[in-house]
């Protein structure tokens, strides 16, 4: 309930910011009677009203539930660990995006396969390496060769000359 309340407050703030951002959209004579800012402003108002409703709903729910009983520390730390573990997948994706222009697609995607599998509980083994190598080869053949997608080549062309 507290999480919902905090989210609702953040959404309300976002609605206000969105309204001002919509108000700052340049006016154009081609925009018609409503203009490019018409619907965004309407949406900002709708979000403001709905998030205010959610704030009220959360407060009422908290009141009805009585004094807040803090969750068991073990369960709470378990939840945090779960979310952090989930966020780790995004971190892996972000690292992939940072390295792919330098290392090139084939190596990066191979490393991505290896890391994601390791991260999710697979022990390092020859089978895992084979999976990453074959997987990278498969993706390379499918996207670069078959579908002709110009995926980043990295430093390899410069190395080969």
């Amino acid at each position: 309930m507290r999480g919902t309340l905090i989210t609702a407050i953040l959404l309300f703030i976002f609605a206000v910011v969105f309204w001002f951002a919509a108000d700052a959209i340049p006016k154009s004579q081609l925009g018609g009677t409503v203009g490019a800012d018409g619907l965004p402003k309407l949406l900002a108002i709708a979000l403001g009203v709905l998030s205010a409703g959610l704030i009220v709903q959360s407060l009422l729910a908290m009141k009805a539930a009585g004094p807040a009983v803090p969750a068991e520390p073990k369960r709470r730390s378990g939840n945090i660990a779960r979310h952090l573990w989930a966020a780790g997948m995004i971190a892996i994706g972000a690292v992939y995006l940072i390295v792919v222009p330098y290392l090139g697609y084939m190596l990066s995607v191979g490393l991505l396969l290896l890391t994601v599998a390791l991260y999710n509980g697979k022990r390092p083994s020859f089978g895992l390496l084979l999976f990453a190598a074959l997987g990278a080869g498969f993706f390379y053949l499918m996207f670069v060769r078959l579908l002709d997608v110009p995926l980043p080549a990295g430093f390899w062309p410069a190395l080969v000359g």
Partner: peptide, 25 residues
């Protein structure tokens, strides 16, 4: 198949497939 392999393959497919739309990181 072990779940980690499946998850890795899906992640690989997502990053490769998305790039193929507009060739944009």
């Amino acid at each position: 198949r072990p779940k980690p392999y499946l998850m890795a393959a899906i992640f690989g497919l997502v990053v490769s497939g998305v790039y193929s739309i507009d060739h944009s990181l």
